[in-house]
Amino acid sequence: MAILEVENITKGFENTEILKGISFDLEKGKTLTIIGRSGSGKTTLLRCLNFLETPDSGTIKVNGEVLFDGKNPSSSEKELREKRLHFGMVFQQFNLFPQYTALENVVLAPGLLNPEKDKVQILVEGKAILSKMGLLDRMDNYPHQLSGGQQQRVAIARALALKPDILCFDEPTSALDPELTGEVLKVIKDLSRQETTMIIVTHEIEFAKDVSDEIIFMDDGIIAEKGSPRQVIDSPQNERTRQFLLNYHT
């Protein structure tokens, strides 16, 4: 069964329709990549899944549970917080908390959300995740003491610490110098191998082809093409997809 079912999501801002009916499913353990031009609605879609934006209509289900229904959209702050925890989010600009060390960034939310849980246990788990990101030796550094690639890996660790069902990445390497993108992509690829369920918005076409189980090409608020990396990247059927991929061709 699909872990995530998205049906007919629409979203507009001041008379501009950004999402014009997006539907897709995602199987547990799979990696879905969303590519497309700037302004095609990729980021807005991710933000809707994380409830940073409220869709105008449509439904979002996780594990069969309806998290959002456009016919009955209101929910209390508390419900909203619980729904959000199904998703993790890694931002383009990292958004680490500057006054906390790498480890503190990772353990802050688990500590606040489970006040009765053993603090030592939380620290041990936090360190384990940082070590998975190859950052154990930097755990006491503050964000400004880390490179962009290291900061983004801390941000990934921070999202993983809450064990989300689905981990979302919003252009995770777009703010990085080219020589730093590799270390972040490698970490994401490892997560993909370990069957973390992920949705990645990216402009790294080669990486998308390499890491994805499925690729969606979004164009002007709709899903223009969807399929395996081989189908979408190597033999695109849609003219707009072909045009878009021409910019990248190697």
Partner: peptide, 15 residues
């Protein structure tokens, strides 16, 4: 930056 509020929100923190 708005990103600080958003990062806190997606981590499930209260306002």
């Amino acid at each position: 930056p708005k990103g600080q509020h958003e990062a806190a929100a997606v981590l499930g923190l209260t306002k």
